[in-house]
Write a protein that binds this DNA or RNA. Structure first.
Lengths: 194, 194
DNA sequence: TGATTATACGACACATTGTAAATTTAGTCT
DNA sequence: AGACTAAATTTACAATGTGTCGTATAATCA
C-alpha cells in the first residue's frame, strides 16, 4: 500500500493537521462560503499551492474529512460490539460510547456538526446511524410492536435516524447539558416507547 | 409601505421569478458551490448587475427565498388552525395540509429541501416545526405520559422535530411513495406511541 | 403624456481559482 | 554521516468571479 507513507510521513500529517485546525477555526468565525483556499492556507501557515497537493478543492477536503470522521466513529462502534450479540443492552452501550467519544472531541464536533452550511458531516453520520438502526430492526424481526401498530418500516427508519442525529446536534449546540450516558438512556426510552 | 411597489411591479416579479426558476434548475444540475452569479444571471436571461439590485449575494438570496417559503407554509398552517383550538385532530390536519402543499410544489421542495449543500431551507422548516411541537406539548400539559416516563421535555422536542423534518426530506427524496394523508397519519402514530 | 424606476450595457479594480514550472527543505534509508 | 526521495515553497500565469460604477433604454404608473 502506498497509504503507509501518506499516513506516517510527519510532514504530511503536520500539514493535514494544520489545514484541519485552520478550517475549524475559520468555521467558528465565518460561513463556509467565505472560506477561500487563500484564507485557509494563510491561517494554516502553509503555502496555498500545498493545499492543492492534498485536496482538489474545498468540497473535496470536506469529503475526506468526513470520511475520516466516519472511520473514527466506526472504530468506536466496532469496539462496542466486539462481543457480537446485538441485543438492546449492546445497542445502548454503543450509543453511549459514541456520545462519549463525541463529547471528548466536543470542540471539533460541535463546530463541524452544528455548522449550518456544512451538512456533509451530518449526512454521513445520518447514513451510519441509519445502517445501525436498520440492522437493529432486522434483528428484532417482524413481530415488533411498531410494525403491528401500522407503522411502515421505512418511515420508522427515516424517523428515528433523523431524530437521533438531530438530537445529537441540538445537544452539542446547547453545550451538552446532559452526560453522554444520560442522553443514551433517553434515546433508549424514546426509541422503545412502544 | 414601499413594499407595495416591490410586490406588484410586474417587472420586479418577473425578474425574481426568473432568478428563482434558474436557481432551482441549476441546483438540479450542480452543487451550490458551483452556482455563480454569472451563471445564474445567464440562465435567468437577466443581466448580472440586475441580480445585485435584488440580492446582496447568493447567500442573501437563499435567505430571502427561505423567508418566502416559511411565509407560504405558515399561511397553510394558519388556515388549518383558523377556527379550531389546538387538539390532536387539528394538529394532524395541519400536518396533512402542509404535506399536501409540499406535494403540490414537489419539484421546488424536493430540489431545495433535499439538496445537501443548501441546508437553510431545512433549518427554517425545522424551526417552524419545533415551535409547533412546543406549543402542542404545552397544551398537553405536564401530565403527559412521556414526561412521566422520565423523558426530558427538551430532549423530546429535539427528537421529534428533527424526526419530522428528516422524514419529510426522506419522503421527498424517495419521490413521495405515500400520500400526504397517509404520511400524516404515520406521524400521528409515531408521535403518540406512548 | 410625462415622471418614475427597473433593467440593460460596458467597464473597472480586485479577489479567487487551478495549474505549471523551478527551487528549497525536510524526512528516510543504507 | 551522506545520498536519495518527496513534501513544501516560491513565483508566475490565465481564467473566472465579484461587487460597483456611470449611462442609456424601456416598462410601469399616475
Amino acid at each position: 500500500m502506498n497509504n503507509k507513507k501518506q499516513d506516517t510521513d510527519p510532514r504530511i500529517l503536520r500539514t493535514r493537521q494544520l489545514i484541519r485546525d485552520a478550517f475549524v477555526e475559520l468555521l467558528q468565525e465565518r460561513d463556509v462560503e467565505k472560506i477561500s483556499v487563500n484564507r485557509l492556507a494563510e491561517r494554516a501557515t502553509i503555502n496555498r499551492v500545498t493545499f492543492y497537493l492534498h485536496y482538489r478543492d474545498i468540497p473535496d477536503m470536506l469529503e475526506k474529512m468526513a470520511d475520516n470522521m466516519i472511520e473514527d466513529i466506526s472504530i468506536v462502534l466496532d469496539q462496542s460490539t466486539e462481543s457480537q450479540r446485538s441485543d438492546e443492552e449492546t445497542n445502548w452501550r454503543s450509543m453511549e460510547n459514541v456520545l462519549k467519544y463525541i463529547a471528548e472531541n466536543a470542540n471539533f464536533y460541535k463546530t463541524i456538526l452544528s455548522s449550518r452550511r456544512v451538512p456533509i458531516f451530518r449526512d454521513r453520520l445520518l447514513m451510519l446511524l441509519t445502517d445501525k438502526i436498520v440492522s437493529a430492526l432486522e434483528n428484532k424481526g417482524s413481530e415488533s410492536n411498531i410494525i403491528k401498530a401500522g407503522i411502515k418500516k421505512d418511515v420508522l427508519i427515516w424517523y428515528d435516524s433523523a431524530a437521533l442525529i438531530g438530537t445529537i446536534v441540538a445537544w452539542l449546540q446547547n453545550d451538552m447539558p446532559y452526560t453522554p450516558s444520560f442522553l443514551a438512556k433517553q434515546f433508549s426510552l424514546l426509541h422503545h416507547r412502544v
